[in-house]
């Protein structure tokens, strides 16, 4: 039972982790809390569904299409919305409100385009892998394997590649990055593209894990993803990875019967927010964030 919960937690947590890195990258560089991220995830999930369902493409092709489309959406939104706002020196609050507006527009557009009925990818829900005492559905297996690979790729990208270093440098200090000769506008586009790819991937994986999803399911994902970002230290990409995994594990393990009889699964989101509140109280800079010097 316990090991099953750990595995479930890793499945949920890895989806949170991927999405949290996407949110964190953009926040780190633009100080933009992207409230529309959940709906960008839903967009990716729906594009992938369109390829996998009606167009009968394999899940891999569908996921790649969903990721690519979400990256393009992110870049287009930067050109159409965020860049003009930056040029007008929009403050933190204006950007935040703009992202809430964008989230509403995106969500309704997705509902209009795809309809309110739940969709499901063409995976066999009855195919189950048994490893010892742990049972994983095919969708969960795909999700956890893909997510693990994606996390390793993202971590290596940030740590080892020049582009990854540039993004971390931009997150540290945007002005200094320009002083050091970095083309800040180009690096910003790169951040959006990667954030979009991750949103698409996280959306597809969330759709797989939940089995069926509606076009507005992004909003329910948004809050745990934000909790993961804060838990890990806002703006820290490594922190977001750890925060996502920790949050997924905590949500699942809270239902363990050995833990004071366990929490009713309905209250899993509550666990997420109790953790968030505790994190803010005890370690406001997050697990990996650094304390800001005024």
């Amino acid at each position: 039972m316990f090991s099953q919960l750990v595995v479930n937690g890793l499945v949920t947590g890895s989806v949170y982790a991927i999405a949290a890195v996407g949110v964190s990258l953009v926040y780190g560089i633009l100080r933009l809390v992207n409230f529309a991220y959940g709906d960008m995830m839903a967009f990716g999930a729906l594009v992938a569904y369109g390829c996998n369902g009606p167009l009968h493409q394999s899940m891999v092709v569908a996921a790649l299409a969903g990721m690519a489309a979400t990256a393009l959406l992110a870049l287009a939104l930067d050109v159409a919305l965020w860049k003009p706002l930056r040029a007008r020196r929009a403050g933190f609050m204006s950007l935040f409100l703009a992202s809430i507006g964008l989230a509403l527009v995106l969500r309704q557009a997705l509902l209009l385009a795809a309809g309110p009925q739940p969709e499901a990818y063409r995976v066999d829900p009855y195919r189950v892998f048994v490893i010892g005492s742990v049972r994983l559905s095919e969708a969960q297996t795909i999700a956890v394997a893909t997510a693990a690979a994606a996390i390793v790729v993202v971590a290596l990208f940030l740590a080892r590649t020049t582009a990854g270093r540039v993004l971390r440098a931009m997150a540290d200090d945007r002005t200094l990055a320009a002083v050091a000769g970095i083309d800040v506008a180009r690096a910003t586009r790169l951040a959006w593209a990667i954030s979009g790819l991750l949103a698409g991937l996280a959306g597809v994986l969330a759709g797989l894990v939940e089995y069926s999803f509606t076009p507005d399911f992004g909003f329910q994902l948004l809050l745990p993803v934000f909790a993961a970002v804060v838990l890990g230290g806002i703006g820290s990409a490594y922190g977001a990875l750890a925060g996502g995994l920790a949050l997924g594990l905590a949500e699942e393990l809270s239902t363990w019967s050995g833990f004071a009889g366990g929490v009713d699964p309905v209250y899993k989101p509550v666990v997420a927010f109790v953790l968030l509140a505790l994190a803010l109280l005890l370690r406001p800079q997050g697990l990996f964030g650094r304390a800001r010097v005024a």
Binding site: R165, V166, R168, D172, D173, L176, I182
Partner: peptide, 22 residues
């Protein structure tokens, strides 16, 4: 710059690497 003149979360070598990208 007078202040905020390094990338604090990057290592010394990474700071120099960023400078060398030109």
């Amino acid at each position: 710059p007078q202040i905020d003149n390094v990338f604090p979360t990057l290592t010394v070598a990474e700071n120099l690497h960023i400078g060398s990208l030109v």
